[in-house]
C-alpha cells in the first residue's frame, strides 16, 4: 500500500528502542511495584514494535499475546495478592545498590565493547529480505525443532503442576 522510506523505518526503530529503554529504566527505578509493572507493559509493547521492524512479524504478535497479554496479567495478579509490598521500603543497602549498578555497568561496557569492536562478517551488514515469517517458523518448528517443541510442552506441564502445588492454599 504505502511505501515508507527506509529513514522512516529506522526512525521508528530508534523511537521504539528509546521507549523500551525508558520503560526498562522505569521498571527498575519505580517506587511502587505496580508502577514497575506498568512500565514493563510499555517496554514489552514497544519491543514488539522493534521486533516487527527487525522483520519478525509473527514474533511481534506473539510478544503482545504472551508477554503483554499473559505474563503481565500474571504479574499484576501476583502484585495484588501480595498487598503489603506497597509498604516495603525499597532501597536496599547503599553497598548493595552500588555493587548492583557496578555489575550492570560492567556487563554493559564489556558487551558494548565486544559489539562495537568485533569484526562482524561482511555478510552480516545487510538484512535478509523482509518477508512474512509465520510459515517459515511453522516449518522449522515441526521439522528441525520438533523435539524442542515437545520439550516446551513438558516444560509448561511441569511449570503448571509445580506452580499449582506451590500456590495452592491447603484447606
Amino acid at each position: 500500500m504505502i511505501a515508507p522510506t527506509e529513514a522512516l523505518v529506522a526512525g521508528s526503530f530508534y523511537t521504539f528502542a528509546a521507549i523500551a529503554l525508558a520503560g526498562a529504566i522505569g521498571v527498575v527505578l519505580a517506587r511502587k511495584v505496580f508502577h514497575s509493572a506498568l512500565f514493563l507493559v510499555l517496554t514489552l509493547a514497544s519491543l514488539a514494535a522493534t521486533f516487527v521492524i527487525l522483520g519478525a512479524d509473527f514474533l511481534g504478535a506473539v510478544q503482545i499475546v504472551i508477554y503483554v497479554g499473559a505474563i503481565t496479567v500474571l504479574i499484576l495478579f501476583g502484585i495484588m495478592l501480595t498487598p503489603r509490598n506497597v509498604e516495603l521500603p525499597e532501597s536496599s543497602g547503599v553497598g548493595r545498590s552500588t555493587a548492583g549498578v557496578f555489575v550492570a555497568a560492567a556487563v554493559f561496557i564489556v558487551s558494548t565493547t565486544v559489539i562495537v569492536t568485533s569484526q562482524w562478517p561482511r555478510s552480516m551488514s545487510t538484512p535478509i529480505p523482509d518477508r512474512p515469517t509465520t510459515e517459515a517458523i511453522g516449518q522449522g518448528l515441526f521439522t528441525t525443532y520438533a523435539l524442542p517443541f515437545e520439550m516446551a510442552s513438558i516444560l509448561l506441564l511441569i511449570a503448571m503442576i509445580g506452580a499449582i502445588v506451590i500456590a495452592r492454599e491447603e484447606q
Binding site: F34, D57, F58, A61, V68, G69, V73, L76
Partner: peptide, 27 residues
Amino acid sequence: VTDLNIGVLFVLGLGGIPTIGILTAGW
C-alpha cells in the same frame, strides 16, 4: 487500512490488553 498477515493473532493480542486496563483501574 492495512491487511496484516498475522491479523488474527494481532486481534487476539489487542483483546488481551483491556485486562491490564481493568486491573489498573481496580488497583
